[in-house]
Amino acid sequence: MEFQTGFFYLFSAVLLFAAFRTVTARSPVHAVLYLMLAFSQAAAIWLLLKAEFLGITLVLVYLGAVMVLFLFVVMMLDINVEELRQGFWKNFPLAAIMGAGIGFELISVLWIGFPEMVVAPEVAQTAMHLADHNNTREIGKLMYSQYFVAVEIAAVILLVGMFAAIALTLRQRKDSKAIDPSIQVKVRAADRLEVVSLPATRPAQQPESQA
């Protein structure tokens, strides 16, 4: 067995274990950590398949941003796990049936949908020639040449979505003590400070001596 095959089975086993523990973990924080482990193993498998761009993107986007955000939100919300697990066994039969159906469909696609095919010699030669190319560079050339307009449109849509999310969640709090900067600039010292003349203090009286 080649070392690539051994690493593939190793990463796949850890990925399946992490995915199983993500669903069965009692603590939401532990579930997020197991999900991060599953994403890292998937990125390693993509690197074995020479899909460097997908592997690095998975690490940077999901592990570096999305999952850290999930972990921060889960730890800040302090979710009551006991209340969430009250209807677990009630919905378990339906979830098990759906999971079994999805698993059967995946097995059918992998074992039946892709029969053994004979690769033509010219196709094999072309594949060997393209194996020396950097797929990340080729993807970059396609993104910023042939699909440049689509990439720009997607970037604008994501930017609009980000501003829309900020605008929808931004509310004026009634208990906020924020002051309008324009009002602060127009403030004059005479409006804030008032000089009051007070009489001079009297000297303390000496106590009368007892006879």
Rank of each mutant, 00 (worst) to 15 (best):
V149E: 08
P121R: 09
R192G: 11
P28M: 05
F92W: 08
R173Y: 01
G87R: 15
R171K: 02
L168G: 12
Y147L: 14
P181F: 00
T201I: 15
W89T: 10
Q206H: 10
R137W: 15
E52W: 13
R137D: 15
D191K: 01
I153C: 05
V14K: 14
D78P: 07
L69E: 09
V29H: 05
V73R: 07
L71C: 03
E2N: 03
A18P: 00
L170C: 08
L49R: 08
E2F: 03
T136D: 07
R171A: 01
E2M: 04
I183P: 04
Y62A: 00
L193G: 06
V185C: 08
A18Q: 00
L33N: 05
V32A: 00
S197A: 15
L60M: 05
L63C: 05
F20P: 04
R85I: 02
L110N: 06
I112C: 08
A18Y: 00
L110R: 06
T136I: 09
A190K: 12
S197C: 15
W111V: 08
L158I: 12
L110P: 04
K50M: 03
L58R: 06
A200D: 13
I56V: 15
A127K: 12
R26H: 12
E122K: 14
A65Y: 01
L54E: 10
I102W: 02
K50Q: 04
V59R: 07
F148I: 15
Q184H: 03
Q184F: 05
K50G: 03
V32C: 00
V14S: 13
K186N: 11
L71Q: 02
A120S: 12
A190D: 12
L110I: 02
M128S: 12
G55Q: 02
F20G: 05
T22A: 07
A154P: 12
A190W: 14
Y62Q: 00
Q41C: 06
V73Q: 07
D180Q: 00
P28R: 05
F114L: 10
G140K: 12
A155P: 10
L77N: 08
T5Q: 01
N80Q: 05
F88W: 02
T136K: 07
M75D: 05
I139D: 11
T5G: 02
W89F: 09
A38D: 01
V23D: 06
R85T: 03
F39M: 13
D191I: 01
F114D: 10
L130I: 12
K141Y: 14
Q184A: 03
M75T: 05
R202I: 14
P115Q: 04
W111G: 09
L54W: 10
H129F: 14
Y144K: 13
I45C: 04
F163S: 08
V68S: 09
A31L: 00
Q4I: 07
V32D: 00
A43R: 03
I166N: 06
S145E: 13
F17I: 10
A131K: 10
P28F: 01
G103Q: 03
A150W: 06
Q4S: 04
F88D: 04
E83M: 03
M76I: 09
P28I: 04
G99K: 05
V149Y: 07
A211Y: 09
V123I: 15
E194V: 11
R202L: 15
Q86N: 04
M76C: 11
T126P: 15
I183L: 08
L71F: 01
A25H: 06
S182N: 10
V109P: 10
R192Q: 08
V32I: 00
M128R: 13
L168H: 12
L84Q: 07
I112N: 06
